[in-house]
Write a protein that binds this DNA or RNA. Structure first.
Lengths: 232, 232
DNA sequence: CTTTGTCTTTGCGCTGACGCAAACAGGATT
DNA sequence: AATCCTGTTTGCGTCAGCGCAAAGACAAAG
């Protein structure tokens, strides 16, 4: 299955690119497909490519020297990843990219990317705008981690995930997420145990329903209330 | 005291700008001076200007709905601030900028900035590169907050501050920082009390010397050891 | 020199969250 | 059906860090 320029336009930083530029991008990139739990790259690897996810889902995570890790974000189709390393010459990736399901991505060679950024100013501009939104998100999450209790952070994470990747199950209007307790813990800077206890409590209250690597949100409104810290 | 184009070149995103562009920037900007503890802007204000600090020192902080705040970064002369709001049309500042001492800044009107970014691609590019470095820093701090103990985070903050703004006192080779316990607490997501207790302990061990809004680092090496979590 | 305001220290009690350990659950494999 | 593997739950003990309150220390102003 080959990729068309029309599809590449779905990538926000390429939405203003010309047909010629899109063609050039396609010509100078390769498709890489990996299976669930495999890695596109590891933190510290030489940043050779910028990736565009075309199918599947991947997570970006960062580890500290002692191996503990945090989830920075999950990437959905037609989003970029690996950009932080690839836009700078001679850089390494600051994070690790692991597939949550079988995934394919378009890999754009960083040398080519640099040339294109020089000759196509609007791409630099759009990329800068995208970067500013990432900074804002990271700053907000940083503040959240610094000032909010675990309960609020987990509720917030569920709300955020529901907005990004939630699948609405028509039948009963619940929103289904596919993440393990461990995943959620790494997203919110807490532990698997604490997340499990919270989920149990919320299930008792009818706010969510849980299963193995499944969370169904029944009462989003109650989650928002918890996230706001109005609870107790 | 007027500002020269040579000085503007000290700003990293303008280091590749032409003399003409620098002149234009100077022509389309005004100087704003404020006193210690005053504000350049508040979180939520319309982002009318991008600022370049010319003298003094300011801190960027973010508050949550309940008024608790975190320090995002401190800005030193010839660094930009307010960029996150100003580069996007119709945006508001995501943080508050408060002067730590009497300060002056060059205020560049955001409308003019947009025009300049369109016509001067290398500025977009340099700004994007700067933004990527901010993201990396925020991601690293986020991970730190999520995985490290308070002790390590405070030690890390001191090391970071020493690198940025520390003044080497020739006499005894100590590095002096001017921050209150409260400031450090807001930088590391902890409380004034905990920072005070840590400082007391470290002073007992001869790692630092403290005073009112002063921290002198005596043994940086020991701080690094604590930051690495090798302690206990 | 005294006053005032701000910053700092420290005792004390409290609790949110951690993390081990052991049991349990469900899907996939043989 | 039996086994394995991975994810989940929950009891239990522990403790890092919080936050009040009250006292102390320093700097600037009167």
């Amino acid at each position: 299955m080959s990729i068309t320029t029309k599809e590449i336009k779905l990538v926000v930083v390429f939405q203003n690119a010309t047909e010629d530029e899109l063609q050039l991008i396609l010509k100078n990139s390769i498709v890489r497909s990996i299976e669930e739990n495999e890695f596109f790259f590891f933190q510290g690897d030489d940043a050779q490519y910028l990736y565009i996810l075309t199918s599947g889902q991947i997570k970006l995570m960062q580890s500290n020297p002692h191996g503990q890790q945090v989830n920075l974000r999950t990437i959905h189709p037609w989003q970029m990843f690996g950009a932080l390393g690839a836009v700078r010459a001679e850089a390494t990736y600051p994070a690790t990219a692991q597939a949550l399901e079988d995934s394919s991505a378009l890999a754009i060679e960083s040398g080519f990317l640099h040339k294109m950024l020089e000759t196509s100013p609007h791409i630099s501009f759009d990329m800068m705008t995208l970067m500013t939104s990432y900074i804002q998100e990271m700053q907000a999450r940083y503040r959240e981690l610094a000032t909010e209790r675990v309960e609020q952070r987990v509720a917030n994470a569920l709300i955020r995930l529901a907005g990004q990747s939630g699948i609405r199950s028509e039948k009963d209007a619940g929103i289904v997420l596919s993440f393990s307790r461990q995943d959620v813990a790494e997203m919110t800077g807490t532990t698997l145990y604490t997340v499990s206890r919270l989920f149990s409590e919320w299930e008792r209250q009818g706010i969510i329903e849980t299963g193995r690597e499944k969370i169904k949100i029944i009462k989003p409104h109650d989650l928002v209330r918890i996230a706001d810290g109005l609870e107790k």
